[in-house]
Design a protein around this nucleic acid. Structure first.
Length: 532
DNA sequence: TGGATATCAACGAGTAAGTT
DNA sequence: AACTTACTCGTTGATATCCA
């Protein structure tokens, strides 16, 4: 429907008043789809021509295609051999498995990454380009970090993108070592330490963004800072590992900067262990560096595809993961102890029978009565719902896993083993397909599970808030204020709320109109921390 | 250049207050 | 009581912007 059509329609009819005319115009001009620039009637940009490519049809006649991917331009990534995947033999209790991956945002891949960590039983997982930053990302972290793992992150400040993180098993005793005394702005880095075979090992994760005019990074400055950084690291008296995405094409002998970078490693008596492509375009960008004489690695550090898939089963990672295995005992499994009473199993009739309070004839004081009441009720509760202590091993939360998903993961693992055994392309294709299906199912199963949980919460706001908070990563233990006695604690609460009410009354009495923001600004919210 | 995220504008649903 | 109005909030889908 265009404007000339409206004019034509309008001119062919007689209208009693201006209102009728306006109504008709409104009917014609009313948008039927959301979004200003949305809708089928909107003129859209001409599709981008990516390349002019020639291909041959079934009769071998050359055809000219105006747009689309030119398959001839795709770089072939060599098939990786048996040691490319984290095998069951490697993942024993005597090895520590480390993986490093440039994720290019964990926000939309959190579930897949979490599954990658759990499925491969990783002990440490270093991530570059997390793209984390805002407070909203707490929900991403909740989905990203499996139970039993800890997460340390360093977000890029002032700009989007970048960011480094380390996910590790709780028993690893990892400690973050901030380098506040040296100025490094040409690359992002996080240094950690952990104990391995009775010695302290330094673990450094690096991300070097490619220099450009917009980010004001310069390769020459990088080398200055990098050399200073290495000078400092090599003085560390024990073993260390430097890994991450350096964005140098170290596979390209004609790349002068990459060769210069490798020279800095040689100058510091370091060895870079990655020799195959770590990026889909065939370059080696992600590196794994140790001292030349290091004995840390049990097997040669290798590269493998992480096989991360989105909810539609499409792959979405342009980097490959580095995998390294250190000889050493895996961290001890951490368990959590908690106490509770089984209130739901209490027989209410029996309970009420036992609640018999004898009031003594001797005129007791209120305090005496309260103490007696408290003591007798405690005994009754202890009888019907005794305090139970339970210890639970912290393991990745799989409550939402369905039988179908478990079977799908088993099939994926079978296909993986078959491919590793034969090395045939057909088996690789089958494995990729299974990965895609499992990735799709993973998202769907979790979505279905929590959709049903939310439905079940209908009418129960407390449960709904609890569920939404846990999904949004807002779950935290309630911390009561410090106190020497229950009396002092209850008095603290009383004073807090008296002050709260007094503050609000004072503000209201000083204002002619209620200013909600001002009133709340005057008030101090109680957040579980010790009261002032 | 492509992918991911941020932002924008329009809309629907819901609600409180005012009007008839 | 029924209706109107103004407003908020969340959703949707397109565009803008950023990053590698």
């Amino acid at each position: 429907m265009n404007f000339s059509h409206i004019i034509k329609t309008v001119s062919s009819q007689t209208f009693n008043n201006k209102g009728q005319l306006m109504h008709l115009c409104n009917v014609f001009l009313r948008r039927t789809r959301r979004g200003t620039r949305a809708g089928k009637s909107v003129q859209r940009a001409i599709p981008v021509i990516t390349s002019k490519i020639n291909h041959y049809d079934s009769q071998n006649i050359i055809c000219h295609k105006q747009h689309g991917a030119n398959i001839a331009n795709l770089a072939k990534i060599p098939l990786l051999k048996t040691n490319s995947l984290i095998s069951d033999e490697i993942n024993t209790n005597n090895n520590i498995v480390i993986s490093v991956l440039n994720c290019r945002s964990v926000k939309n891949k959190a579930l897949s990454i979490s599954d990658y960590v759990v499925s491969n039983k990783l002990d440490m997982f270093a991530i570059t380009e997390t793209w984390l930053g805002s407070s909203i990302d707490e929900s991403v972290k909740q989905e990203l970090v499996p139970t039993g793992y800890d997460f340390l992150q360093l977000n890029r400040e002032h700009r989007r993108g970048g960011g480094i993180a380390l996910m590790f098993k709780k028993g690893m005793n990892i400690e973050y070592l901030p380098n506040n005394d040296i100025c490094i702005d040409q690359f992002e880095h996080m240094d950690f330490s952990f104990c391995h075979a009775k010695t302290c090992v330094k673990f450094c994760v690096i991300y070097r963004p490619p220099p450009s005019k917009s980010n004001d990074l310069r390769t020459s400055l990088f080398f200055d800072q990098w050399n200073s950084y290495l000078d400092r690291i090599v003085t560390f008296p024990h073993e260390f590992i430097i890994t991450g995405d350096f964005n140098f094409h170290v596979d390209d002998k004609n790349d002068s900067n990459a060769m210069k970078f490798l020279q800095t490693l040689e100058d510091h008596n370091l060895t870079q262990h990655i020799s195959t492509a770590t990026h889909i375009r065939g370059h080696t960008l992600d590196l794994f560096i140790t001292r030349s004489e290091s004995n840390l690695l049990r097997t040669k550090a290798s590269v493998h595809e992480p096989n991360l898939f989105d909810a539609r089963g499409n792959p979405f990672c342009d980097h490959h993961a580095i995998q390294a295995v250190l000889a050493g005992a895996k961290p001890k499994k951490i368990s959590k102890t908690f106490t509770f009473r089984k209130w739901k199993t209490v027989d209410q009739v029996e309970l009420s029978k036992d609640i018999v309070l004898d009031i003594p004839d001797t005129n007791p004081s209120v305090d005496e009565l309260a103490n007696q009441y408290d003591s007798e009720l405690r005994d009754v509760v202890e009888k019907h719902a005794p305090l139970v202590t339970k210890s639970v091993l912290l393991r990745p939360n799989t409550q939402w896993y369905s039988d179908e998903l478990r079977e799908s993961k088993r099939n994926r693992r079978r296909a993986e083993r078959k491919w590793r055994e034969t090395g045939l392309e057909i088996h690789r294709q089958i494995f990729k397909e299974r990965c895609s299906n499992t990735g799709k199912l993973l998202h769907q199963t979790k979505q279905d599970f929590f959709s049903k949980k939310i439905e079940d919460c209908s009418g129960d706001h407390k449960q709904l808030f609890k569920l939404s908070n846990s999904l949004m990563g807002k779950q935290h233990d309630i911390v009561l204020p410090t106190s020497t006695s229950n009396t002092e604690l209850s008095n603290k609460f009383a004073h807090f709320f008296i002050n709260k009410v007094t503050t609000i009354r004072n503000v209201l009495s000083q204002q002619h109109s209620f200013n909600r923001e001002l009133s709340l600004a005057e008030d101090t919210p109680f957040n579980g921390e010790p009261l002032p």
